[in-house]
């Protein structure tokens, strides 16, 4: 499966990954409108962590050994059989936050309205996830794994 690799030594903390993630998951798909009208309705699936001059962008790791799937009590959190991505079926999620409790990367958030979990969906409908495609310094790259 393909995996997004984080190269923290190249991350300049610009946050473009977050911006493009929000736009991609907005209704309008337009950067200005997405920010003006929808910013508070979308929790980006990638988030930049910063500490002094250090930074890196983190999205769900789509772990092989995904503890969030194990802990999900409704069956909403599942592995997409085609892409191998770990996805949350928000129609079945009841917002119990068991996934947030167990994710060692802290990569799952409460959705903007606080009722269902929100996480990176690996942009499964794109050739390359938008955070990777728009990273100016190759701090996020897509690599093939066996």
């Amino acid at each position: 499966m393909k995996r997004i690799i984080i190269h923290e030594e190249y991350c300049i903390g610009c946050g473009l990954c977050e911006v493009h993630c929000i736009v991609k998951h907005s209704r309008t798909g337009k950067i200005i409108r997405a920010f003006k009208e929808e910013r508070d309705q979308i929790v980006p699936g990638v988030q930049v962590e910063r500490d002094g001059y250090e930074s890196f962008a983190l999205q769900c790791r789509h772990c092989d050994d995904a503890v969030c799937i194990e802990a999900c009590m409704t069956g909403a959190m599942h592995r997409d059989p085609e892409t191998g991505a770990v996805l949350c079926d928000t129609d079945r999620c009841v917002g119990c936050w068991m996934c947030i409790m167990v994710c060692p990367a802290g990569a799952i958030q409460q959705g903007a309205d606080g009722t269902v979990a929100s996480k990176c969906d690996a942009c499964t409908d794109e050739e390359i996830p938008v955070c990777v495609a728009n990273c100016p310094n190759e701090a996020l790259v897509l690599e093939d794994e066996e």
């Binding site: 962590e49 500490d51 890196f56 772990c63 092989d64 050994d65 503890v67 990367a105 802290g106």
Partner: peptide
């Protein structure tokens, strides 16, 4: 508090996505 404050080795393993067990 985030992953960024954690020791590099542990953080690398968590973000590698192979699972932490």
């Amino acid at each position: 508090f985030g992953l960024i404050q954690l020791p590099t080795e542990y953080r690398r393993r968590v973000i590698s996505g192979t699972g932490t067990r």
